[in-house]
Amino acid sequence: RNRTTFSTFQLEELEKVFQKTHYPDVYAREQLALRTDLTEARVQVWFQNRRAKWRK
């Protein structure tokens, strides 16, 4: 699988949710996936990576 390149819009949407919660539930991830045209799995992995970055 190739690396996912996120658009500016997608990143803004993802970051917006991350500001509210670092652990969105499955429903929130599904909604975000639909809004950003990503799969729920991509959204989940983005949050994992974003939390790792945030901890540093």
Rank of each mutant, 00 (worst) to 15 (best):
L14H: 00
T21A: 05
E40K: 09
D25E: 05
F6L: 15
V45T: 13
H22E: 05
L11Y: 03
A52K: 11
K20Y: 06
E30K: 07
E30N: 14
N2L: 09
T5D: 15
F18H: 02
L11S: 09
T8F: 10
L14W: 02
F18L: 00
R35A: 08
V26S: 07
R3F: 13
D25C: 05
R42K: 10
P24N: 01
K16Q: 07
A33G: 09
Q19N: 15
F18N: 03
Y23V: 03
E40V: 12
W46C: 03
R29I: 03
A52C: 06
R55T: 10
L11K: 06
W54V: 10
L11D: 07
A41W: 09
L14R: 01
L14M: 08
E12F: 02
E30Q: 08
E15F: 01
V45H: 12
R50N: 04
T36E: 00
A28Q: 10
F47M: 06
A28C: 13
R1M: 11
Y27C: 11
L14T: 01
D25V: 03
H22Y: 02
A41C: 04
R55H: 07
Q19H: 07
K53S: 11
K16I: 03
R50K: 06
R1C: 14
R35E: 08
K53V: 12
V17Q: 12
V43A: 00
F9N: 08
L34W: 10
R55L: 11
K56S: 14
Q19A: 15
T5G: 14
K16S: 14
W54G: 13
T8E: 11
T39I: 02
L38S: 13
K20H: 06
Q19L: 09
F9M: 13
L34M: 14
L34G: 12
W54M: 12
R50V: 01
R3N: 15
E30Y: 09
Q19F: 09
R3C: 15
N49W: 10
R42F: 04
V26I: 11
Q19S: 15
H22L: 04
K16G: 07
T8N: 11
Y27N: 09
T21W: 05
E15L: 01
R51E: 04
A33Y: 02
E12G: 08
T36F: 10
F6R: 05
K53G: 11
F18P: 00
T21K: 03
T8M: 06
A41S: 09
D25P: 08
A52D: 11
V43W: 01
K56Y: 07
Y23I: 01
T39R: 03
K16E: 05
T36Q: 00
E30R: 09
R42L: 14
Q48R: 13
R55M: 13
E30A: 13
Q31C: 13
H22S: 06
V43L: 06
F47I: 01
N2T: 12
T4A: 13
N49P: 01
F9E: 12
E12T: 11
H22C: 06
L11M: 06
E13D: 00
A28T: 12
W46Y: 04
R42W: 05
E12V: 10
Y23N: 09
T36V: 12
Q31Y: 04
F47P: 02
K53H: 09
R35W: 06
D25N: 04
V45E: 13
T4H: 15
W54K: 08
K53T: 15
H22D: 04
E13F: 00
V26H: 08
L38Y: 08
F9Q: 13
T5V: 12
E40C: 07
K20W: 05
N49T: 07
R1V: 15
Q48W: 05
L11P: 00
V43G: 01
V26P: 11
D25Q: 03
T36K: 00
R50L: 01
A33E: 04
K20S: 12
R29N: 06
V26W: 14
